[in-house]
């Protein structure tokens, strides 16, 4: 075990790469989810078709295959990325497809009465979305977004197959160099779990903020403990 822990520099580097992939991949996924999710709520059929094409294609493909494609195939037709960029793109495109469905579903789940109130106040379609539907839909998006960001973080493990030294790759390297299989893989197990828990805390905190915006909670700062314990469920209407 001591040998495994002695190489903490490698562990930290690996964890850092995993975190970077999660953050950048998550950012790409979020942007794509919003763009294509909103496209899915459009009045125009051809805009909704864009949403369907994107979602079905990137949801229906293995992330690893996407990654192989960006890494091995695209350079052959003249498009060359860094490995890191290819990995971020593959992860972001894949998780973004799931996220687009979350965005579309959440916007559609905002009560119709809210939409009608925006019409009665003569909001433009953009203002309806930006000022009322999206902020309320965001409350519904957060829990599934929490799922997706953790899915994405775990999904980063595939980059070890194209030569990036992430947590998974580090654990494999250390297992090889020290021969301590149980210890090496136990450490990596714990590290993934810890990263997931930190992500979860961020999502919970965001949920608290949104709950307060929607008036479902009195305006007091919650302690870390209550954030970790999670929020009691409530609908948007509440």
């Amino acid at each position: 075990m001591a040998d495994v822990l002695d190489s903490y520099n490698q562990w930290l580097d690996g964890a850092w790469l995993t975190i970077q992939l999660t953050i950048f991949g998550g950012a790409v996924a979020l942007v794509l989810a919003l763009v294509f999710g909103l496209a899915g709520t459009s009045r125009h059929a051809w805009v909704r078709v864009l949403n369907r094409v994107y979602v079905e294609f990137f949801r229906g493909n293995a992330t690893l295959v996407l990654l192989y494609w960006f890494f091995y195939a695209l350079p052959l037709v003249g498009l060359r990325f860094t490995t890191m960029f290819a990995a971020i793109l593959a992860l972001g495109l894949n998780v973004g497809a799931y996220g687009a469905e979350v965005v579309r579903g959440s916007i559609n789940a905002v009560p119709k009465a809210q939409f009608e109130a925006t019409v009665a106040l003569n909001f433009t379609p953009y203002q309806r979305m930006r000022r009322v539907l999206l902020p309320q839909g965001f409350a519904l998006m957060l829990p599934p977004f929490g799922n997706l960001i953790i899915e994405l973080m775990k999904g980063t493990a595939i980059v070890s197959l194209v030569g990036l030294v992430d947590l998974t790759r580090v654990s494999k390297n250390i297992q090889g160099s020290t021969g301590e299989t149980v210890a090496a893989f136990t450490v990596v197990l714990v590290l993934y779990f810890v990263i997931a828990q930190v992500l979860q805390l961020f999502v919970r905190y965001a949920e608290r903020r949104v709950d307060r915006m929607l008036g479902r909670r009195m305006p007091t700062e919650p302690s870390l403990g209550t954030i970790a314990a999670g929020a009691p469920g409530a609908g948007v209407g509440g």
């Binding site: 009465a113 109130a117 433009t124 915006m213 008036g215």
Partner: peptide
């Protein structure tokens, strides 16, 4: 429609206040 709606206001049975605003 946007021009015409300027003249009309409506109060709903279920109030329909925006919960994301004070």
């Amino acid at each position: 429609l946007h021009e015409m709606r300027k003249q009309v206001g409506m109060v709903f049975q279920q109030f329909n206040l925006f919960p994301n605003m004070n």
